[in-house]
Write a protein that binds this DNA or RNA. Structure first.
Length: 159
DNA sequence: GCCAACGTTGGC
DNA sequence: GCCAACGTTGGC
């Protein structure tokens, strides 16, 4: 049974438009064990992904993507010139594992964090809970469906 | 730019 | 294995 995930990206580094241009991308540079474990242990090809814009004004969900590879090592951990180089990682014993993601559809508009906070049905989303710093988190099918649905309705500022 | 809330590191 | 110090995330 396919699941849904929310994955954060800073759009000035990598946006949904970039993903559409590239066709697919390795979800690299994740250096958090919990986020890695989701990719390594729980994600399956075909799982749905909500592509979330963080660290911008306003933050929110911009598009739908899909997991499109088995887990494999993040190349940036082996690159000594990268900020994400991990001296303790080796080819035989890689520490950071990722999956590839491909675009499905850009949402008609951004569903903002504020809207998600204002929606009573979405209060169980890890995103709106205190101290959420996870860059990858599971989302229930119902919550994901609702967020996608919200993108097809007018935003609060259009009301 | 600030800072709260977290995760990680390393000395002990 | 504890925990203080430090670094990072990310909304505001």
């Amino acid at each position: 049974m396919a699941r849904t995930w929310l994955m954060k990206s800073e759009p000035y580094k990598y946006s949904f438009d970039d993903l559409e241009r590239d066709g697919r991308t390795p979800w690299d540079e994740i250096r958090n064990y919990q986020a890695r474990n989701f990719m390594r242990d729980d994600m399956k090809i075909g799982d749905r992904v909500l592509f979330y814009y963080s660290n911008v004004q306003p933050p929110g969900v911009a598009g739908v993507a899909e997991v499109c590879s088995e887990p494999y090592p993040d190349e940036t951990q082996f690159d000594e010139t990268s900020n994400y180089h991990d001296p303790k990682a080796t080819r035989d014993n890689p520490r950071w594992i990722l999956v590839d993601v491909k675009p499905v559809k850009k949402l008609p508009r951004l569903v903002t964090l504020q809207e998600i906070k204002d929606e009573p049905k979405l209060q169980d989303l890890p995103l709106v809970r205190r101290g959420n710093r996870l860059s990858i988190m599971p989302v229930s099918e119902a919550d994901a469906d609702l967020i996608i649905d919200m993108a097809n309705r007018p935003g609060p500022e259009d009301a």
